[in-house]
């Protein structure tokens, strides 16, 4: 009678090892690609951010946090950061608000599929393309100014794309136009997945549609909303293509958002180590947001239990 023997026998160990080696063969291409082109560069970028380095001069001295303090004392950086905050807040509120509104509007009506398609198409198009079109909307001789003059609000026309106060809202509008579609479709899916019984029960109890929405639909939608929000926010503040294209006339491109700031300082001003540090900062912000999301998701799950 054998006593308790939890360790695997030599035969089982050999089988496990063979399994693992086979698995490794299947995993290898993916692991190699990701490591070489993504993970190693990531580490390298962090390393660079702590050195002083001008393009190819080969001087790699360790300078500690000099690049980071440079960033924090750079007014352009701060303006870009401020704009980025606007982007974060806007991409938190606008696509969700609009998306939710549209989702509620479109829920269950005839031809919902057609509406969904129409709202969703901008999402598929390149941000470059979107930015180009909206550039002409906000251009000096563009559609917005034309529409304003047309309805007699000629005094309200301005150079949207040159005005420091107006450029960011203008770009945010273009971006929102693009991303609301996706949010709306995801929310529609979420709404469709809601169980109908609680809603019917509330109706029987005499709740108005607004009350039903606020007290029943919204809480049940929260998990979907959360996921959708995070996608929206991170996409929002890291967006480059659209900002680059729409902001082409803007004199101080480097202050538009952190993403553009990073590109400009690195590839146009040749401040490589500085650019690396900005990239790290952007990454940290993204991590922070993801971390907050995970926390909130945990809280939601705990509350559901």
């Amino acid at each position: 009678m054998q006593s308790s023997r939890p360790k695997p026998s030599p035969r089982e160990k050999a089988a496990q090892r063979a399994n693992f080696l086979t698995a490794l063969c299947f995993l290898a291409p993916a692991v190699l690609l990701v490591t070489v082109f993504l993970l190693v560069p990531l580490i390298y970028n962090v390393w660079i951010s702590f050195t002083g380095w001008a393009k190819f001069s080969g001087i790699d001295r360790f300078v500690g946090v000099a690049n980071y303090s440079q960033a924090f004392s750079n007014p352009k950086f701060f303006e870009a950061a401020g704009n980025t905050v606007s982007w974060i807040v806007a991409s938190l509120v606008l696509p969700i608000g609009l998306g939710l509104g549209f989702a509620l509007l479109l829920r269950g009506i005839r031809g919902a599929e057609a509406f969904k398609t129409v709202f969703f198409v901008p999402r598929l198009l390149a941000p470059t393309a979107i930015g180009t079109i909206w550039y002409y909307v906000f251009a000096d001789n563009g559609t917005l100014n034309a529409m304003l003059s047309g309805v007699g609000l000629g005094d309200w026309t301005r150079s949207w794309l040159y005005d420091p106060l107006m450029i960011t809202p203008a770009m945010i509008i273009a971006h929102t136009w693009q991303t609301t579609g996706l949010v709306m479709v995801l929310l529609l899916l979420g709404l469709a997945a809601l169980p109908t019984e609680p809603l019917e029960a509330a109706q029987v109890e005499g709740a108005t549609p607004f009350q039903i929405f606020r007290h029943i639909v919204l809480p049940m939608l929260l998990p979907t909303l959360l996921v959708v929000t995070i996608i929206s926010v991170i996409a929002g503040f890291t967006t480059f293509d659209l900002v680059w294209v729409m902001g082409r006339d803007y004199p101080n491109r480097s202050t538009l958002t952190l993403a553009v700031h990073q590109y400009w300082e690195t590839f146009r001003s040749n401040r490589w180590a500085y650019g690396a540090s900005v990239a790290v900062l952007i990454g940290l912000i993204a991590l922070l947001i993801t971390w907050v999301q995970t926390l909130l998701q945990q809280k939601l799950e705990d509350r559901a239990k």
């Binding site: 993970l39 590109y263 790290v280």
Partner: peptide
């Protein structure tokens, strides 16, 4: 690979 915004890959 997808966790970080792409800015961090550009320079390296």
């Amino acid at each position: 690979g997808t966790i970080f915004p792409f800015q961090i890959y550009l320079i390296p």
